[in-house]
């Protein structure tokens, strides 16, 4: 219940003198909260992994053999200063699209691809230019490409989409990014597994389902989580490919 001593504020009248100092203080504290939180939250954002589109390198054109894992890989046979022969590139279209349509029917064939590099430490992906400029068959004999089986492995780490991981988005992994990664995978962007520790010199690998199938939908629930999973590993050029058994996925405690 109010009493005479307490100041009484009426919105459309002048503020009582005894309330002014309190309200000035409240305004200062209020704005102070916004200034402090804005600065603190803004300046303590985690640093994304060193990765991204390399528009500064310009458009790259290389020739190689297409392999369908089923996600198309390019085994580079004729490279340039940046991308040497023996390199294996994952391929993506613009946006959240893979290049399955362009690569269809070209398996084992010699193609020339043109696009922009995505780099995360090493160069592992190219975003192809649109239309026929992006990928076209070239004359010549395609050499046989070796695939080296590495046995069955149990790996630990995170399922991501290869494009965002390579810096198309920064940050490009984690649970806050899960829906985006799933959308990329639905669009046939190659999925990858980031390993806690390097395997055969590589800290990530392309993942597929068993027997030349796509990554099973069951794995989508675990995108961005830290999981362990089993599968057959193979090396194609300098790229590891894990044929993941979705039933073996387990969330790691802690």
């Amino acid at each position: 219940m109010s009493n005479q001593d307490k100041p009484f504020f009426v919105g459309y009248l002048d503020i009582p003198g005894s309330l002014r100092r309190f309200l000035v203080l409240a305004c200062l504290v209020g704005t102070g909260i916004f200034v402090a939180t804005g600065l603190l939250i803004g300046s303590t954002q985690d640093e994304p992994a060193a990765s991204g589109f390399r528009f500064d390198y310009g458009r790259q054109t290389v020739t190689g053999v297409i392999e369908l894992t089923p996600y198309p890989l390019l085994r580079v046979t004729q490279g340039n200063d940046l991308i040497k022969p023996g390199k294996t590139l994952m391929l993506s279209g613009q946006g959240k699209f893979g290049v399955d349509a362009q690569a269809m029917g070209l398996e084992g064939g010699l193609v020339e691809v043109t696009g922009i590099i995505l780099q995360r430490g090493t160069i592992d992906m190219m975003q192809l230019a649109g239309g026929r400029r992006g990928m076209k068959m070239v004359d010549g004999d395609a050499p046989d490409m070796e695939t080296e089986p590495l046995g069955r492995w149990k790996v630990a780490g995170e399922i991501c989409d290869g494009k965002c991981l390579n810096g198309a988005m920064r940050p490009g992994r984690g649970l806050a990014h899960k829906a985006c990664a799933a959308l990329c995978l639905v669009g046939d962007v190659p999925p990858v597994f980031v390993s806690t520790q390097p395997i055969e010199g590589s800290d990530f690998m392309l993942i597929t389902g068993p027997d030349g199938t796509r990554l099973p939908k069951a794995a989508y629930d675990h995108i961005g989580q830290f999981v362990s999973a089993e599968g057959d590993l193979e090396r194609r050029g300098d790229m590891l490919v894990l044929k993941l058994d979705a039933e073996t996925i387990e969330v790691i405690d802690g």
Binding site: G151, R152, K154, G157, S195, T196
Partner: peptide, 18 residues
């Protein structure tokens, strides 16, 4: 909330061809 399981190492379960 998970922490990156940096201590969990990849394990080879079987050699190729086995």
């Amino acid at each position: 909330r998970q922490t990156w399981p940096v201590d969990v190492a990849p394990v080879q379960l079987s050699e190729p061809g086995q």
